[in-house]
């Protein structure tokens, strides 16, 4: 299991990286953390003519707070996210989700931008990006553009990025003060990709639910924002009956596939179960009545 021959470049700037990407005309691959790409290359399932390694572009690794958002340089390691005080404070849902990403040695190398650009529908970060309505900045030969989470994911391992574009930044709105959150995941082993995962955030306003956010991992070819379920909560609050109704709706909103680990029906069932667990935990102990 050794990769095929390839040309290797480790540019120091995004501009250089874009120039190289243009030069290979779709035959090159971007190497970020490598935790998904390198296994595919070792299996020779991915056979790029060239690798453009972003690991030497220091300017792509940062976490910045601006304008009510947290902006993550694409090459920010998942491990950095995990231990970032500002993430713990402003995006605790992302922090909790990070603990489900592989294992610590994987998170040492894996990056937030790489995980999202790889677009594995069972991965945690795409679910969080979708739940929180985040966006990504993308640079290419035609300049920079911003893609909303809802526009980003096309299908398995496929985004709307063009082959000559690079995802440079991930932007997530900071969670409102007092928001509750939970990331629930069911996998057959610790550290595996989710059979189903649910990212949830709720903002309570007394007995009401001002804002609900729910998105899936593993319940279809792309992460699914469960908007119709969120609406039930925003209308009826966070009591048991509302959660019951919302999660029943959630199960109808997903179209999971079957594989050797789980049937489609089981994934649909888990969507409901995990959404309920996530919502109860996000809503906190006071929300059960009503």
């Amino acid at each position: 299991m050794k990769p095929v021959k390839f040309e290797y470049h480790a540019p120091a700037t995004v501009d250089e990286a874009l120039a190289l990407l243009g030069r290979y005309g779709g035959e090159a691959k971007i190497l970020a953390g490598g935790q998904s790409l390198m296994p595919l290359m070792n299996f020779r399932l991915s056979r790029p003519a060239a690798l453009i390694d972003l690991n030497r572009i220091a300017s792509l690794a940062y976490i910045r707070e601006d304008d009510g958002h947290l902006a993550f340089g694409a090459m920010t390691r998942q491990r950095t996210v995990e231990f970032s005080p500002v993430v713990a404070q402003r995006l605790p849902l992302l922090r909790e989700a990070t603990r489900w990403v592989g294992h610590l040695p994987i998170r040492s190398r894996g990056t937030i931008g790489g995980s999202i650009a790889h677009a594995d529908p069972a991965a945690e970060y795409p679910a969080v990006l979708t739940a929180l309505d985040g966006e990504v900045r993308v640079r290419g030969p035609r300049g920079e553009r911003v893609l909303k989470a809802s526009d980003l994911f096309v299908t398995y391992l496929t985004t709307r990025l063009e082959p000559d574009e690079i995802l440079t930044e991930v932007r997530l709105p900071a969670m409102p003060a007092g928001a509750g959150h939970a990331f629930e995941e069911f996998a057959r082993r610790h550290g595996d990709f989710a059979i189903v995962g649910i990212a949830a955030m709720v903002v309570r306003d007394g007995g009401r639910c001002r804002q609900a956010r729910l998105a899936t991992a593993g319940a279809g070819p792309v992460p699914v924002r469960l908007r119709a379920a969120e609406e039930i909560l925003e209308r009826d609050g966070l009591g048991d009956r509302a959660i019951e109704a919302a999660t029943a709706r959630a199960a109808e909103l997903v179209s999971p596939d079957a594989d050797i680990h789980a049937s489609a029906d089981y994934r649909r069932h888990l969507t409901r179960v995990l959404a309920a667990r996530a919502l109860r935990r996000a809503a906190g102990p006071g929300a059960r009545r009503g």
């Binding site: 296994p39 299996f43 082993r189 610790h190 550290g191 595996d192």
Partner: peptide
Amino acid sequence: TFMDYLVPTASE
């Protein structure tokens, strides 16, 4: 692959 052939880990 070891992604699909599931060897139990310390957590299991």
